[in-house]
Design a binder for these strands. Structure first.
Lengths: 243, 243
DNA sequence: GAGTGGTCTAGACCACGAG
DNA sequence: TCGTGGTCTAGACCACTCC
């Protein structure tokens, strides 16, 4: 077991102190003082601070100092859901209700060339092809089509697909799904979209296509979700630092 | 003038080499070799590599090495706007062509309650209400509706709105717009959407609504963009690291 | 000029993966 | 065991802001 990194200890402590409004004038001590106070190197302080900058919680001004983002303290709810667009059961929860799952099909097949490339597979390796629907209050709001390498989850059964695939993977492989690369777009609904998602002809679907990675970088799933447009809400927090 | 940082030089060179497919097996040299080859410290190499990881272009596996994300080479256009969803002129560039701007209306008004909240304004403060269209090759692909505090840009004129508002702000205030909080969704097109964006009745619009911030955390703009669905491509790279 | 953050270095030791 | 990336240190010098 890897012990907690120093910069994470500093990070969490600083976050706690910020939340407790321990810096009433919104100015943090300078980096060298923090290094002395925590008895760590300035580099470790910088690393912790940079994560907080990345999360929009603080900002730095060269020559002046480091400051808490006033927006963070005044409107923390806005920051809570950010950076958490991973996983249907979390993102599409409504009133605390977790979406129901309907398994449409589940089969092993050989990975085609594109899939091999995307999932880092060798010739002849197999993937699960999983088609599912997600429902809230009896209404289907998402069609999901996913490909997952068989070798990552050799014991996967249809029953496991009634719940969260990511949670199953985390329990089984001891590695979390922590990264995703998604392309989000919109399209007119097809006839079959209209039927399954109860859409009118002029109503669109949101499309989220992408790849999900385990925390060690292993590609875990490529998939596409076609989503009833009323349920398609994607929140993003962008930052252009360090570019 | 600040000279280009070493890690940026390494970063750009590595990106170029990746784009030129100089690593056919998708594996990069190890960090220590790169440090020797570039004649810089390993820390600088790590910094450059970490930016590429953040951008989803490469991923690292401890004990194994550093690898190019196969998706990146397969579909680079997908990655172009990543981490760059700030600013229309950058995100919606096509073939290097910068979108043209058409100013529809531009007026000062009192901020209503929601706007005050979003932009952190006091009672009675004024905002610019700006409506613009964006065009590529003569075709309008976006309707933009924005609110900006007057006090941030007291000298703003209609002429300035023919170009990038963000660039104007950066030149005027000496602060860059580096952060955004966006909600992305899709809707059926309205009749006026169909007219302005040349959409058929069943074709949708993408909607991107959000707040933009200066790098010191000041809210700069709240706005909504209604986008022709074929131009709506939002790429996101999510990471739950260090949380 | 003093204070503060930004960049960079050289090297040490740790943790993980593969053979 | 070896190669690889991860973390951390101590210190140097630079660039910007403010007095």
């Amino acid at each position: 077991m890897e012990k907690e990194a120093i910069y994470l200890r500093v990070l969490n402590d600083l976050k706690k102190r910020i939340n407790q409004q321990e810096f009433p004038n919104l100015k943090l001590p300078d980096e060298r003082s923090l290094a002395t106070a925590y008895d760590v190197s300035r580099s470790s302080i910088k690393r912790a601070l940079n994560v907080l900058v990345q999360q929009g919680i603080i900002f730095k001004k060269r020559g002046s100092g480091t400051f808490v983002n006033p927006l963070y303290l005044k409107n923390q709810t806005m920051f809570q859901s950010m950076g958490h667009n991973l996983g249907v059961s979390d993102s599409f929860r409504i009133d605390g209700e977790v979406p129901a799952v309907e398994l449409i099909s589940f089969e092993k097949q050989a990975a085609d060339e594109d899939t091999q490339l995307a999932l880092f597979l060798e010739d002849g390796e197999q993937v699960y092809h999983i088609k599912r629907l997600r429902q809230l209050k009896g209404q289907t709001f998402m069609r999901e089509d996913a490909l997952v390498p068989v070798k990552l989850l050799p014991e996967l059964t249809a029953a496991d697909l009634q719940g969260s695939l990511f949670q199953y993977a985390e329990a089984t492989t001891k590695k979390a799904v922590t990264r995703s690369f998604l392309t989000i777009s919109a399209e007119p609904s097809t006839e079959s979209d209209q039927e399954v998602l109860a859409l009118k002809q002029n109503e669109p679907v949101g499309v989220m296509a992408g790849i999900y990675f385990l925390d060690d970088g292993t590609p875990f799933e490529v998939g596409t979700m076609r989503i009833h447009y009323k349920y398609m809400k994607y929140n993003s927090f962008d930052s252009l630092d360090g570019e």
